[in-house]
Amino acid sequence: MQHPKTDWVKYIVVFFITVMLFGTATFFSNYFSNKKLEELKSIQDNVAIDILASETQFSLLEESSCQDISKETILSEELASLSDKISYSEKNLSSKSDEVIRLKQYYSLLEIKDFLLMNRLSERCNRPSIFILHFYDNEDCEPCVRQWYVLGELRAKYPQLRVYSFDYNLDLSTIRTLIKIYKIPEEMPSLILNGKLHKGFQDIESIELALPALAKILEPEEGFEPTTSTLQKWRSTN
């Protein structure tokens, strides 16, 4: 008995079906990746509007009392979540790397605008300025990874803390200007805490020490009824 003739057409048909299935997978992957980018753009637009609104509000009320200026002018949480999402996209949407980099540039600009606005606000209204400028290297920088952990932890601990992170190698003239102003060295990571440059990895304790205003965040305000968890948190850190 002879084996039946090999059905080559079938092998070719199966090949094309498999190619089609791969095409389908690629299509869905692209579709959902684009959706993510759209979501990022939409968040960025919202943040841009928020910043613009705050600037306008600030200008309008320049002559008025600081109490009239909303404390929640810009949603720092939104900025933080945007930062997480851009960072995730950089790692996971490699096929869209150009678009992600453009979004990252835009995000960095928004960060700088927010940073400038907060600076003006704290100067004029004598509000504590609790922010960190963070410069990192995105490639093969183990201390930078650890620094991210520390900053993430601080952000969770002090929700009002603003962390402005900048990719040292991002091609953006504004970042280059910041690097010049603060004399940021090539050694990464670098932090600006209270206007001072801190080179290399900084742990939680050294950052808390450099930013005494952080402790005040956990202190209960006048007329403010603290929750048990807030008190526990405050006691544990004091």
Partner: peptide, 20 residues
Amino acid sequence: SDSAPRFDLFYMNTKITFFL
């Protein structure tokens, strides 16, 4: 803060491998 899961569809895997 590290162990808390992130419930956001944004973080859903959309790589080709996932769909394959």
